[in-house]
């Protein structure tokens, strides 16, 4: 499973806009690079990223090869109640990578 890093604050006040950050180790091979034999390396990318919390979606992305290697996103979640913030990445080969972090809302 690829390495991921996520950042969710430990605590937040209800109603706060909370910054969320996520990164996954992935080459996002764009199909335009050549190997040492001069052959194009096929496209190999993460296609989907989703962040969910408190029964709903926060932010999701349909990724294309135009995003950089090791795709990174930051965005803002609206804190409503304590619970897990869940992250999910889908590789084009179907591999699913997940991560989760607890957010305590006071």
């Amino acid at each position: 499973m690829p390495n991921t890093r996520i950042r969710v604050p430990k605590t937040a006040k209800a109603g706060d806009a909370v910054e969320i950050r996520a990164i996954i180790q992935h080459p996002m091979e764009n199909g335009f690079r050549l190997d040492s034999q001069g052959t194009a390396i096929p496209v190999e990318i993460i296609t989907d990223f989703t962040c969910t919390y408190d029964g709903g979606e926060v932010f999701s992305v349909k990724l294309e090869p135009g995003l950089s290697a090791n795709p990174y996103f930051s965005f803002y979640l609206k804190a409503t109640k304590s619970g897990p913030v869940d992250f999910r990445w889908v590789d084009q080969d179907g591999t699913i990578t997940t991560a989760t972090e607890q957010l305590d809302v006071t």
């Binding site: 390495n3 890093r5 950042r7 950050r21 990164i23 180790q25 290697a69 090791n70 930051s74």
Partner: peptide
């Protein structure tokens, strides 16, 4: 200290 991609290798 979060987004530096090199930290993925450090964690590995």
């Amino acid at each position: 200290d979060f987004a530096n991609p090199g930290l993925l290798w450090v964690e590995e």
